[in-house]
Design a protein around this nucleic acid. Sequence first.
DNA 1: ACATAAAAGAACAAATAAGAACAAAAACGA
DNA 2: TCGTTTTTGTTCTTATTTGTTCTTTTATGT
Lengths: 250, 250
Amino acid sequence: MNFQLRKQYILQTLEQHGSVEVAAVAGHLRTTPITIRRDLALLADQGLVVRTHGGAVRPNMARHPIAFITKATAQGPQKEYICQLAARHIAEGDTIFIDCGSTTFPLCALIRHLKIRVVTNSLPVLFELAGSAVQVVMAGGEVDAKRRATHGAVATEHLRRYAVDKAFVGVDGVSLRRGLSANSEKEASIFLAVAASAGHVYLLCDSSKLERDQYFQFAPLSAVGTLVTDKQAPAELLAQHRDAGLAVLS
Amino acid sequence: MNFQLRKQYILQTLEQHGSVEVAAVAGHLRTTPITIRRDLALLADQGLVVRTHGGAVRPNMARHPIAFITKATAQGPQKEYICQLAARHIAEGDTIFIDCGSTTFPLCALIRHLKIRVVTNSLPVLFELAGSAVQVVMAGGEVDAKRRATHGAVATEHLRRYAVDKAFVGVDGVSLRRGLSANSEKEASIFLAVAASAGHVYLLCDSSKLERDQYFQFAPLSAVGTLVTDKQAPAELLAQHRDAGLAVLS
DNA sequence: ACATAAAAGAACAAATAAGAACAAAAACGA
DNA sequence: TCGTTTTTGTTCTTATTTGTTCTTTTATGT
């Protein structure tokens, strides 16, 4: 019976009943009160529980993770797959950029344990990676609550100053002829700031976005180093991307 | 019995039970604990398991969201009171700075509905106010997971560029003779950056911190415009602060 | 407000596990 | 087959966790 398992039990009980008692937990887990108290102290340090005399209660403040979970999209599994491909290109010691958006977000789970530095403007990424092995650098600037990211002049200027080894970005649309496009100028300016000084740009893009233009076109295809997409992407199209000079993973 | 087979067994057991123990696996596979520990170390490197003492657990079991709530401290009610006093000085249209720390955090709940701009380096403040009526500006920079805030050269430089109307800051210690002090240079440099261009500095400080010096002294009392504290503060001491030129709320 | 019982905390001791360094065994290629 | 490389085991040291004892703090009833 180690700490992780006790923690599981405590948090689970807390979730169900709203409170736990030291003596009850100690009895149930066949250990002593001091051990449980130490556990609760640790969990309280992380804000996961609030100590009371004789036990602990659930933090009444709304748990914010709920607000920041990725919306389950139709392309959920594809995005996970794409991120798995991309994650293989991340090595210990790297400094990488992770874009905001649902396509790049699953990367977080795959790199939590790596000793790398992650630069991001995404609030969910920040939240997911804060407290992990990863050193997070947040781009400062105005917070766009809808996109859950920082944007604006300060953010782009801030990002321009970081020369990341690898940038993992998403877009709203890509096409061979018109390059990268987005629904918002904000996204575009973030991309341009990052891409300018990134060693290599990985475009994470599920197949539904291929050959689909959005209204704001902001960069040629050549700004991208590697296109990472899923198995549904037509082989012929991928070959054309390779001809255009991109590396392609799928 | 090679590594691949042990790995299969370990991951399978992990999938079924959520956790494994070194001794149990070693016994079952007729090998020694050190071998299993080496296996687990390898698997942990790949993020497939999370080590515990005596075994390992599934990664998703160990992963816990960092709850961005303030830990309930002994001075909880005092801090709420202090923030209520401070909130009366915030008017629609203001641009204010909110410091990281448990003293200033309760301010968020009191200003959610106001049309103001909040500049902050605090992650809890960011998450509390994201999506509210408030326009949030986050200071960019390295994320300090322990303090749940951004810090560092970039953050201070970023903050220096905002001229906020009012800055609401906390400190670890204040005294008449030695001024403001902190436990960390990080906190200090944030204060100095903000205070330099703030219209008015409100120091939120519960009475337990009055006349208590911390090791790093970083600013004179005159850097503060208004001291906001609680009812427990000795009247005589507050009078002395007034003599020193500060406005005092309690 | 005071007394009392329960719980928390500090300090120390014991048990258990992890890690380092080196030796032995097995696998592999020439 | 021999030498080399990789894997596994042994021994010893170090670190972590847990439990015990005692003191201090906190909650609750009178």
